[in-house]
Amino acid sequence: MAASIIHRVTGAGLSIVGLAVLTWWLLALSGGTESYDAFTKTAGSLIGKIVLIGLTWAFFQHLFSGIRHLVMDTGAAFELGINKTFAILTFVGSVLLTAALWWYLLGVAK
């Protein structure tokens, strides 16, 4: 249940916010130094970072629950125990990957 609705919510978030940020980033890049600086300044602000971290998590979560849906499309993993473990693993995986990625990106370890 939870994994399924989260799949939709993260999908909608990636569709609207994710693609908007991607398009803005490309436009900013194509516009030259000034527009790119404006983008990186917004992206580097606190709110910008929160949005980007949220998008990273949404991407990984949608990716993992998407794989779960693909597996279930084949008729597999419908048993309650396996199904629940798989659902929990999608959350564990997405949170861990997001944390690792931003740990590296923000240079927390350095």
């Binding site: 693609l19 908007a20 991607l22 398009t23 490309l26 436009l27 890049l29 194509s30």
Partner: peptide, 13 residues
């Protein structure tokens, strides 16, 4: 529209 905009920006790059 969004896809076209993104593609246009990429083409420029």
């Amino acid at each position: 529209g969004g896809g076209a905009l993104a593609l246009f920006a990429l083409a420029r790059i």
